[in-house]
Design a protein around this nucleic acid. Structure first.
Length: 422
DNA sequence: TCTGGGGTCCTAGGACCC
DNA sequence: TCTGGGGTCCTAGGACCC
């Protein structure tokens, strides 16, 4: 039986904002999604005020103002950089480390089982705090699903004081019997409803399902979930990143777009960014999808979704090739007379660039590769959007809102916070 | 005026083949 | 009454995650 821990940062985006801004301590803070649309992270104080995950900011604006809630635009550069530091702080406490999401890491604790693992986990949390200021919780259990559940218990139940070790079967059962089925990792709305119809409302009841029944109610996914709750691992801590299957750059607009030129400008920028992302990961794509659509929340308004899938032959990470394909797609799918609010580029059939199938007549790819390298260097050194194709346009009215974005405290030397000594 | 952006995995069903 | 019986491959869409 293995020993797996999940360490999860509390209110991660808010904690990152607080790391460099003392004025946010103790006050309610909300971090908004891109375009300042929804609440996607809330401090404990904001949660206490009833701000829910995904609440549209513009619908709760009055309440936020009334209670003095600070709203920050999301700053993914900061959160990504802080994650590196969290992972670095955690590494010496585990034999294997799997970065699961921007604020969660699975750890293999098998070599440490002779120690008191609660002490071990607390030492790890202290180190993360010292290195990053970020508070965390830890769940320990024999499988990933149980470690996730243990982590949630550590967060919710003050009894655990931030670390829940559920290796003991009796304690584990006690927690599972009180844990809502709908909150189990892998149980979403649809599955929760099906389970409820069968009278299954706790994690303990899911654990007690027959595997065959689980499979017929859900799919092989639910069957594996039941096994994991029974303590039988269906997935291990994986250090190596799996090969990426797809990649996307999509954004809502700050204001509706009505004409094709403006839309092309936005799509051009997304295509350039998509190429940059491919090159950063050393990949090429075989297929590009471009899409754009109207505001689906707006009833009564004309709705249209345009999309085109384009093959990329040869497979490429060349931004200008992506741009050309995307433009053809937009031209083919365009309809006049609608107010478009979002567009995006998706890339599929990703392959490592050095394994890319060669084609005849692909010409002097070396020259274009050097151009792309130069482009990445310029934009890396002087800031994004320093060198852009003219197609991207210079008036960017559509660009998303981010009215309260924190500075690049950790990734731009000119924005590093200063500590002034008396 | 105003509701995010990115991923993964699984299954059903159609197209096509012999 | 009853109208073959497999395969494979691909895609769309659902469900879930953070």
């Amino acid at each position: 039986m293995s020993t797996i821990a999940l360490i999860d940062c509390n209110n991660y985006y808010v904690s990152c904002e607080r790391a460099f801004d003392a004025s946010l301590a103790g006050v309610p803070v909300v971090v908004a999604s891109n375009n300042d649309g929804c609440a996607i992270a809330r401090s404990a104080e904001a949660k206490a005020l009833g701000v829910k995950m995904g609440d549209p900011i513009h619908l709760i604006r009055d309440r936020l103002t009334k209670h003095g809630v600070v709203v920050r635009s999301s700053n993914y550069t900061l959160y990504g950089d802080m994650q590196r530091r969290v992972v670095a702080a955690v590494e010496e406490f585990a034999s294997e480390v799997e970065i699961y999401s921007i604020d969660e890491t699975f750890l293999d604790l098998e070599p440490f089982v002779d120690r008191d693992l609660v002490d071990h986990a607390n030492a790890m949390r202290d180190q993360v705090r010292r290195w990053t200021t970020i508070p965390t919780c830890v769940g320990i259990a024999p499988t990933k699903t149980l470690a996730k559940l243990a982590n949630a218990a550590a967060k919710k139940n003050p009894l655990f004081d931030g670390v829940a070790d559920l290796r003991d079967p009796r304690l584990r059962s006690w927690v599972l019997d009180r844990f809502p089925a709908a909150d189990v990792w892998g149980v979403g709305r649809a599955t929760a409803a099906k389970l409820a119809d069968l009278g299954i409302t706790t994690a303990g009841q899911i654990r007690d399902m027959q595997l065959k029944q689980a499979r017929s109610v859900g799919t092989v996914v639910l069957e594996r979930l039941v096994a994991e709750l029974q303590g039988v691992a269906a997935s291990a801590v994986e250090v190596v990143e799996p090969q990426r299957r797809g990649m996307a750059v999509t954004r809502s607009f700050g204001m509706p777009v009505h004409d094709i030129e403006t839309l092309m400008g936005a799509v051009a920028q997304y295509a350039m960014r998509a190429g940059e992302k491919l090159r950063q990961h050393g990949l090429v794509a075989g297929q590009l999808t471009v899409f754009f659509h109207t505001n689906r929340f707006k009833t009564g308004a004309g709705q249209y979704q345009g999309a085109r899938r384009m093959g990329l032959h040869p497979m490429t990470s060349d931004s200008l090739e992506l741009l050309a394909a995307a433009r053809r797609g937009v031209e083919a799918a365009w309809r006049d007379g609608y107010a478009y609010t979002k567009a995006g580029i998706m890339l599929d059939e990703l392959v490592a660039a050095d394994l890319r199938p060669r084609t005849l007549f692909e010409g002097d790819v070396g020259r274009r590769e050097r151009l792309m390298t130069a482009l990445d260097e310029v934009n890396g050194r002087f800031g994004k959007l320093t060198a852009v194709p003219a197609a991207q346009g210079f008036k960017r009215d559509w660009k998303m809102r981010a009215e309260n974005r924190s500075p690049a405290w950790t990734t731009r030397i000119d924005q590093v916070p200063l500590v002034l000594a008396d």
